[in-house]
Design a protein around this nucleic acid. Structure first.
Lengths: 190, 190
DNA sequence: ACTCCTTGCTAGCAGTGCTAGAACTACGAG
DNA sequence: CTCGTAGTTCTAGCACTGCTAGCAAGGAGT
């Protein structure tokens, strides 16, 4: 029995290796540089082993995204926890969100802009993703007013998402980013 | 001389043909189905002629995006013009923007989410794009308060963009879309 | 020690964006 | 009316993509 366990453990280690390699490659050269061949070469296996772990390239991207959700949730939690008052908590969470998108753009891309089949806002939604949204919701709660809390959080999130993606894509100039963030927060704390 | 003119005219007609075919193909099967081979087959020419008109596939997508900017600007203008008061003007413009994104999702994708080398917010920015932003700016103006008008417009735009892209990508449920839009407008007219 | 079955490999398919160079067409000069 | 030339369009092909069929090797269980 124990050899089966060792096998399974080694298999999981290799899966980690694949996901980490994909992320590193994407971070240094972008997702379009992440090909099955280059990935296989990096982990020192042949391409077909990738398909014994994941259904395809999309599934590998989804795995990277899943890691990202956990990281983002943790950082939102930390930002909110270290804030003195509700206003600072919302601003801190927003800043943490923006910082995540700026420092790990390719991970953010896999999480929120690529066509990856991860179910959102349903029972099968990954826990890490639900946690992240919950953090945002708690930050918004003190300012929800008469609005439905979920809807208000979604709109705030959409604002953040819009700002970071438009800026990243060159649709908004890099200068003024901080000002725009502050303006968004003001709209939701007023 | 006139034969040269005829040649040039035919050339432009063929260019229109290419852009329209690309758009139709994308609208019916998505951008990933728009390959140079299928495009060439549709216009009944061989692939290389595409490259005598455009630098590459990205440039064809950019041409489709450019058409989209003109259409969006026109629709924003119409929506704003037919509104009774500033509040209705902003709501109308937002609704028109959302409707555009919903009815022409692939065009919207080429315009705002794909990595296309169109310069934004600069002197070389296409006029149609500047016009569209100007429409949004005029709709926002009555509610700008103490904020910088440009920044406030950008943040409002980011909110719209976030809502439509997250909804389109399945990150936000389709139900509640109208409610979220209304909530965003309320945040910017308050 | 001998099967058997898992595991990872080599080789290949169908498709991608893009391009070099041939071939054909239509023009203008003699 | 003929012929060289200029310009245009095509055929064929390159290097790459994601993905898979089928073979070879090696450890596991009897």
């Amino acid at each position: 029995m124990s050899i089966r366990e060792r096998r399974e453990r080694e298999r999981q280690e290799r899966e980690r290796l694949i996901v980490d390699a994909a992320r590193e490659l994407a971070e240094s050269e972008g997702w379009e540089a992440v090909t099955t061949r280059r990935l296989a070469e990096r982990i020192e296996y042949s391409q077909p082993v990738l398909y014994s772990h994941f259904k395809g390239k999309d599934a590998i991207m989804a795995a990277v995204a899943l890691d990202g959700f956990a990281e983002l949730a943790a950082e939102l939690r930390a930002a909110r926890a270290s804030a003195a008052d509700p206003r600072a908590a919302l601003a801190g969470a927003a800043a943490a969100y923006a910082r995540f998108a700026e420092t790990r753009p390719v991970v953010y891309e896999a999480m929120f802009t690529s066509k990856v089949d991860l179910t959102f806002a349903s029972d099968e939604t990954p826990p890490a993703l639900q946690e992240g949204f919950a953090e945002l919701r708690e930050a918004v709660r003190p300012f929800a007013g008469d609005d439905d809390l979920g809807a208000r959080t979604e709109v705030f999130w959409a604002g953040l998402h819009g700002l970071v993606t438009l800026t990243r894509g060159g649709r908004l100039p890099a200068e003024g980013h901080e000002e725009r963030l502050a303006l968004l927060i003001r709209r939701f704390t007023g």
